[in-house]
């Protein structure tokens, strides 16, 4: 049994929130540079350059990459041999988030009630997903998820008779419909299978895979490539002004499902993919 103090979790979450918002990860920068080399549209090239340059400014001046510093989505894997002492786990995570958004000068973008729209003033609550795993570590993964791209996401309950082509059409129609709104070039996370609640979780988790790393299953990896090509053929381009870079990557995760079902969830992420993780 390993003991981990709650305060350590708070500090880690706080650091992850600030880092995610000010320091664009290497894999995202690499994908943007790769896209810039291939982009044919002049406005597309200019926008990709501005995005890359913005990452430099944000890193140098410790400023948020985007004014929408997101809803903090925290995935926590707790080793079953860990004992958390000196505080409550969820409170420790939330304290880390509020401290980061306050001290780190990040925008508070959470409303207390979805209809009354009053700002909570501390970016709380975070959305927390907990999992118990073997071992004696705690792994914390944090997505600072902007609202614009999240709004473009969708789920559809297909029938088992549906084909891969029908699923592709659902994804492509969604991308066409939203066009420039989610701040392309996007990252597309797709969850296929599970249930009405689990497919979106698969989609969201797939966004946290190293950018552009194919699924370990060959057939799924080929599907990711096929969809990426189709999405980039739409012509939407960087910020929707036309071009060949509409998405940087497609990540698909598959999971068993009920004999009657075929849920498909698409979680859309903007180019400012703010993700960091740490293991305690």
């Amino acid at each position: 049994m390993r003991e981990i103090v709650a305060k350590k979790i708070t500090q880690t979450v706080r650091t992850l929130c600030i880092e995610a918002n000010t320091n664009l990860s290497e894999d995202v920068l690499a994908a943007l540079n790769k896209a810039l080399a291939k982009e044919e549209s002049s406005s597309g090239q200019e926008i990709l350059k501005q995005i890359i340059n913005n990452a430099k400014v944000a890193w140098r001046e410790k400023m948020p990459l985007c004014q929408d510093t997101g809803l903090a989505i925290v995935f926590v894997e707790i080793g079953q041999d860990v004992h958390i002492i000196g505080g409550n786990l969820k409170a420790a995570i939330n304290e880390g988030v509020s401290s980061a958004y306050d001290k780190g000068h990040l925008r508070k973008s959470v409303t207390k009630d979805p209809l009354k729209r009053e700002n909570t003033g501390n970016n709380l609550p975070a959305i927390i997903h907990l999992d118990i795993v073997p071992g004696e570590n705690i792994r914390i993964r944090l997505l600072a998820k902007g609202g614009g791209a999240e709004n473009c996401s969708a789920i559809k309950m297909f029938n088992p008779s549906s084909t891969k082509e029908e699923i592709n059409s659902f994804v492509l129609d969604l991308i066409e419909k939203n066009g420039p709104n989610p701040c392309p070039p996007m990252i597309i996370g797709i969850g296929v299978g599970g249930s009405f609640d689990y497919a979106p979780l698969l989609a969201k988790e797939s966004l946290m895979r190293e950018l552009g790393k194919p699924n370990s299953d060959q057939e799924t990896a080929a599907w990711e490539n096929e969809l990426l090509e189709k999405i980039n053929a739409t012509g939407i381009g960087p910020m929707g002004l036309g071009g060949n870079t509409t998405a940087l990557a497609v990540h698909i995760e598959r999971y068993p499902c009920h004999i009657s079902s075929l849920p498909v969830a698409v979680n859309i992420q903007c180019h400012s993919h703010r993700y960091k993780e740490a293991t305690l």
Binding site: I47, P64, N119
Partner: peptide, 28 residues
């Protein structure tokens, strides 16, 4: 249209900022 997600760079083009209404909305 101004590209989204290049907000550290855009801030350089703002010389002054004043709240003129609804301070209770916080960031809005």
């Amino acid at each position: 249209v101004v590209p989204g997600g290049i907000s550290a760079g855009i801030a350089k083009h703002i010389l002054k900022s004043t709240i003129i209404a609804y301070p209770e909305l916080g960031p809005e």
